[in-house]
């Protein structure tokens, strides 16, 4: 069996067990209603985590994600409320800005040979600072389009609601799975994560791929901002603080090796759902502090890093 499948299977197993455990204590959690809320509540994190998956698979890191989400929500609010643009136009502009921002960071990482950690750290400050300059205060969005979107959903059997933002996240995961595993771009991402020297010698367009990866992460952070905006009907510069770290956690818990080269987009989905599950459980329980989410996520993260060490240390060799 493919070695990199093992952490993914472990994650899936843990998710199923955790869900089972949660259901035995809170039977109400076994319903499509809860499932639908899962998807809606974690949509922005899931979308951002998809971008992070590509970045981490290539051996990099993107710390700017949370700040770009925050910036995007403010930009959208400004465009709609102050400049009277239609939300769809505002979304397009915001996505363009976020994508360009990511592409510039990718170019800096490749051409200036600065570690992605440093470049995206700078990007994080720039985006967060930029958002505060646009508007230090929260801007509420009041637009008919938002109300229509927020009220649209597909009714699931059992009374659950698959909202538009939930559907956007599912679509993003579906496209990303094809992109990662069935296109040359995806192959090149894995190649960079395996060995950049080898990849270059094998003809991988390193510059184009690197820029593409961070542009993709920027685009998805922007899309995550759009979803966040739809979810909260507001733009605020301090939105999505630290979401990049939740995204990294989701990616790693989903079985992607933090040093790059191994992992699956589908694993990230389960990583996000697992975080969501913990959160939902705590809400259902009602007595636990919400900080327990962080503790459980921290423990899971630690466990998965140990697990990966074991799996990837000295794999069995065939001859």
């Amino acid at each position: 069996m493919n070695r990199s499948l093992r952490p993914l299977l472990a994650t899936t197993l843990i998710f199923l067990l955790a869900y089972l455990l949660a259901v035995t204590q809170q039977p109400a959690m076994l319903s499509t209603r809860v499932l639908g809320n899962f998807l809606t509540d974690n949509a922005f994190l899931g979308i951002a985590a998809v971008g992070m998956t590509f970045v981490i698979l290539s051996g990099g890191i993107d710390l700017s994600v949370g700040a770009v989400i925050g910036f995007t929500t403010v930009l959208i609010a400004v465009l709609i409320m102050w400049l009277d643009l239609h939300p769809l136009l505002a979304f397009a502009i915001a996505l363009g800005v976020a994508t360009g921002f990511g592409a510039v960071m990718g170019a800096a990482i490749h051409y200036l040979r600065v570690p992605s950690f440093i470049v995206t750290l700078a990007g994080m400050f720039l985006a967060r600072g930029g958002a505060s300059v646009l508007s230090p205060d929260s801007i509420g969005i009041d637009h008919a389009f938002y109300k229509v979107i927020q009220k649209s959903y597909v009714l699931l059997p059992g009374g659950g609601r698959l909202t538009v933002v939930g559907m956007i996240m599912l679509a993003v995961f579906a496209v990303a799975i094809l992109l990662a595993h069935r296109t040359r771009f995806g192959s090149n991402v894995y190649a960079l994560g395996g060995s950049e020297t080898s990849a270059a010698l094998m003809g991988v367009p390193v510059a184009r791929t690197t820029i593409g990866i961070y542009a993709l992460s920027g685009f998805l952070a922007g899309l995550s901002g759009v979803v966040f905006s739809l979810y909260t009907s507001a733009g605020y510069s301090l939105n999505a603080l630290g979401v990049e770290l939740d995204a990294i956690a989701a990616v790693v818990i989903g079985g992607t090796l933090l040093t790059g080269g191994y992992g699956f987009v589908a694993g990230t989905f389960i990583g996000v759902m697992l975080q969501g599950l913990v959160q939902t459980y705590i809400v259902f329980d009602g007595t636990l502090s919400s900080w327990w989410t962080k503790i459980v996520v921290g423990a899971l993260l630690f466990m998965f890093i140990l697990l990966q060490r074991l799996v990837f240390r000295a794999g069995p060799r065939r001859t």
């Binding site: 192959s187 894995y190 190649a191 060995s195 094998m202 991988v204 080269g261």
Partner: peptide, 15 residues
């Protein structure tokens, strides 16, 4: 100078 993390087929046909 190949990619240890990819399949043999992928290594042969990358690009």
């Amino acid at each position: 100078n190949l990619l240890p993390n990819r399949s043999v087929a992928e290594n042969l046909f990358l690009g």
